[in-house]
């Protein structure tokens, strides 16, 4: 059986590389931590991988805007390799700082359907309205009609946000509406007291239900193909139920798969989805 190969980027202050590698492996892939410079120098070849993950962290200390400097290195030094990867229909995920990087490189939300990546920045992530970096658990819901391959079959999940710059912004209402129409606003913060599947709302939720003041409570978006996906919350941090704040209360939600002897957390499914997609589309 084919085992998808995942490149987990690291270097320059990325710091969720170990756990991101681990969750891909728990979900059935073969994952490697690869330093950004190995791709730039040609030491490693991105084309030899099936999935690219840009993990969370503080690349270059978030100075000059989160994701900006690492985004520039990738935009200028890995341009062709990244374009070929996307054109080849291979999935990419950016989590937290990785999402910020993908937005700053222009891979998210990306150009209109049918076009190759043009590396033009179309949206942004600004400082949280609170002005504070915070670590807190949030409740997320997914657009069931999103083309995103990473979130198929997922309705609601909980996991932590850990960021200071997570407020998703589009420059015009028209641009935001276009993403919404295309179902690219894949995942959003919701009020946990709503019924499951009925939480999505365009009206801004109060802090801290929306931890950052994002437009339409957006937590993550995908590109027009649904293969490139980024989100501010950390699904990998809820790979096991023992990481859930409610596990001593006996109420930590159970994940969809059966890894970890019924202790699988809700977040693992997202990584399994991409692995299954690669297996089925090779």
């Amino acid at each position: 059986m084919m085992v998808p190969r995942v490149a987990v980027l690291f270097g320059f202050g990325i710091n969720c590389d170990h756990e991101t590698k681990a969750v891909f492996e728990l979900a059935g892939a073969e994952a490697h931590r690869i330093h950004v410079n190995r791709f730039i120098s040609g030491d490693s070849n991105l084309a030899e991988f099936d999935i690219l993950a840009v993990p969370g962290g503080f690349s270059f200390g978030d100075h000059l805007g989160s994701g900006r400097l690492l985004g520039n290195r990738m935009r200028f030094a890995m341009r062709d390799a990244l374009r070929d990867f996307v054109d080849a229909g291979k999935p990419i995920i950016g989590i937290c700082n990785g999402f910020q990087v993908l937005v700053k490189t222009g891979l998210l939300p990306g150009p209109d359907a049918g076009q190759s990546p043009d590396f033009v920045q179309r949206g942004s992530l600004g400082l949280n309205d609170s002005g504070r970096y915070e670590d807190r658990w949030v409740t997320l819901e997914f657009d069931p009609n999103s083309p995103c391959i990473w979130t198929k079959g997922m309705t609601r999940m909980t996991c932590p946000v850990r960021h200071g710059e997570g407020k998703y912004i589009m420059p015009t209402p028209q641009a935001l509406e276009a993403l919404s129409t295309n179902h690219q606003l894949t995942v959003r913060y919701v009020d946990p007291s709503t019924a499951v599947g009925e939480g999505l709302s365009d009206t801004a939720l109060p802090y801290p239900l929306s931890p950052n003041g994002s437009m339409r409570n957006v937590a993550g978006i995908c590109d027009a193909t649904g293969l490139v996906f980024g989100l501010m919350p950390h699904p990998e941090a809820n790979y096991a139920r023992w990481l859930h704040p409610d596990h001593t209360r006996g109420t930590a939600p159970v994940g969809q798969g059966n890894a970890l002897d019924s202790w699988e957390g809700e977040g693992l499914q997202m990584f399994r989805n991409a692995i299954e997609y690669v297996k089925q589309n090779r």
Partner: peptide
Amino acid sequence: RQYDHEVIA
């Protein structure tokens, strides 16, 4: 809460 207490999962 302003400290990241969960990185490394």
